[in-house]
């Protein structure tokens, strides 16, 4: 079983290599000169040239790539040109924050999506159905960054109910362990920090989660409707089973398959979407790191962060694939 799952992920590594190569090549074609940027503005041409040689930028592109990939494999992601710190430290600081945000948002999206899907399904053939469907269409028309602004406007500024900048209140010292703030605070028993971190997470996670809930609602509803046309549902009715039983034992697991696939795709997109949320809520995660790096053309960071996003997506895909295998016997029994 585990061997099959691993075999199915055989394409992940080649994809990663190709992505990294593409990323590397694309960014090297930029009209910016990392060597010049790393030097003070008054540096002479010779000094810049020396820096270029020192950074290996004079070598052929494939060689540069090979060197870079070799360093990456050893955990050396290079140094930021702009902030002059190792990229790996920057990532270690920001990645847990982004994961925490994305997972919280996905939990919200998932629970909203699944319950909404069931409600929409319950409304089928009802007069309220077109209304409910139009409501989800309109909900889908609000992208995550508009939700984020709206929430700041309402809960942050107007009601002043929830904080909307950073991860912690200014006065609270940050528990230092893994970088996953909620986990660290709970582990170390710093409950004040825990409460503050939780409150700070509410608005960004809600904004991100609510934006990704409608597609989940719709796919669950659509799959349930499809499945209720299947022979085995009819046969279950003919066997006199109750509707609750049919929904729980026969329909949900089957409808779960396409829903799970979608949630996997959604999670990947959501991870990217967290970038905007982080910018809007001044949340110190990978998204903010990326945006700053892009503005400063800080290539080592862009490369590393880009690659990290790609690894995250591939990991999510692998997990979804494994889950899919667990709940779909047709794939398992080969």
């Amino acid at each position: 079983m585990i061997a099959t799952l691993l075999k199915r992920q055989a394409t992940a590594l080649p994809i990663l290599l190709i992505v990294s190569a593409l990323l590397f090549t694309a960014l090297r074609l930029l009209p910016v000169d990392p060597a010049a940027m790393s030097m003070p503005p008054n540096a002479t041409k010779a000094e810049v040239e020396a820096a270029r040689v020192a950074m290996g930028l004079d070598r052929p592109l494939p060689e540069q790539y090979a060197i870079w990939i070799g360093q990456v494999a050893h955990g050396d992601l290079g140094r930021s040109i702009h902030v002059r710190r190792p990229v790996s430290t920057l990532l270690a600081d920001t990645l847990p924050a982004t994961i925490e945000l994305a997972v919280a948002a996905m939990l919200i999206a998932g629970s909203l999506g699944l319950s909404g899907g069931l409600i929409l399904f319950a409304l089928r053939d009802n007069k309220a159905e077109p209304l409910a469907e139009t409501a989800t269409t309109l909900m889908m028309s609000v992208p995550e960054f508009l939700w984020a602004l709206l929430f700041i406007f309402v809960f942050g500024v107007a009601l002043q109910a929830l904080p909307f900048t950073g991860r912690l209140d200014p006065g609270i010292s940050r528990p230092v362990l893994t970088g996953f703030l909620l986990f660290d605070a709970a582990w170390l028993g710093q409950w004040k920090a825990f409460a503050s971190a939780l409150l700070h997470l509410v608005l960004p996670a809600a904004a991100l989660g609510i934006a990704f809930a409608p597609p989940i609602m719709r796919v669950l509803r659509a799959s349930l409707i499809d499945i209720y046309h299947e022979d085995y549902i009819r046969q279950a009715r003919l066997r006199g089973l109750s509707e609750t039983r049919i929904l729980l034992f026969h329909a949900l697991q089957n409808a779960g398959l396409p829903t799970l696939t979608l949630m996997g795709v959604q999670f990947g997109i959501l991870f990217g979407g967290s970038l905007l949320i982080e910018v809007i809520y001044a949340y110190p995660g990978m998204g903010n790191l990326m945006v700053d790096a892009v503005r400063n053309a800080d290539l080592p960071i862009i490369q590393a962060v880009g690659l990290t996003y790609c690894i995250v997506v591939l990991t999510i895909n692998a997990v979804v694939d494994a889950l899919y295998h667990v709940i779909n016997p047709r794939l398992r029994a080969r």
């Binding site: 299947e230 022979d231 085995y232 009819r234 046969q235 279950a236 034992f249 026969h250 697991q253 089957n254 709940i327 779909n328 016997p329 047709r330």
Partner: peptide
């Protein structure tokens, strides 16, 4: 198709 594919 009259038997549920995900249960034994």
């Amino acid at each position: 198709t009259a038997l549920n594919p995900v249960h034994t």
